[in-house]
Design a protein around this nucleic acid. Structure first.
Length: 126
DNA sequence: ATTCTAACA
DNA sequence: TGTTAGAA
């Protein structure tokens, strides 16, 4: 394998995640490690960063579904629009927008949103 | 020895 | 999610 890529065993050690979870997150399209000729997963430095980020968000209280919605589905401008809404201090009743309400169930939403935006921005260049 | 897929307590 | 069987 090329330098800068690692087998799942090493990723397990470096992230503290179980192999099961690492592969499961891949099934959610949260990461897309390359495959070797023998069908072995090869994780890039970026895949690992991504896994660590997912771990941070989970610790922060976000559900996998919320993380998936944010990291996989929305375009950069969608996330930005949500961020703007937040920074403008808009208050919307949970019942009014149930889906949106579950997106950022945290106190430090601003920090999370900044991080998500940073990731979105980084997406295009690589 | 490691990793992979599929499947189920 | 954990874990395991059987293949690669």
């Amino acid at each position: 394998m090329r330098t800068g890529e690692y087998p799942i065993g090493e990723v397990k050690e470096r992230t503290g995640l179980t192999e099961r979870r690492i592969r499961y997150y891949e099934s959610l399209n949260l990461i897309r490690p390359r495959r070797s000729e023998g069908n072995q997963r090869l994780y890039s430095e970026r895949d690992i960063e991504r896994l660590l980020e997912i771990k941070r968000l989970l610790d922060g209280g976000l559900s996998l579904r919320a993380i998936r919605n944010q990291m996989v589905q929305p375009s950069a401008d969608e996330v930005e629009r949500d961020a703007e809404s937040y920074f403008e201090g808009k208050r919307i009743a949970h019942g009014a927008r149930p889906h949106q309400a579950s997106l950022y169930p945290l106190k430090d939403r601003a920090a999370i949103i900044r991080r998500l935006l940073r990731d979105q921005d980084r997406e295009d260049g690589e």
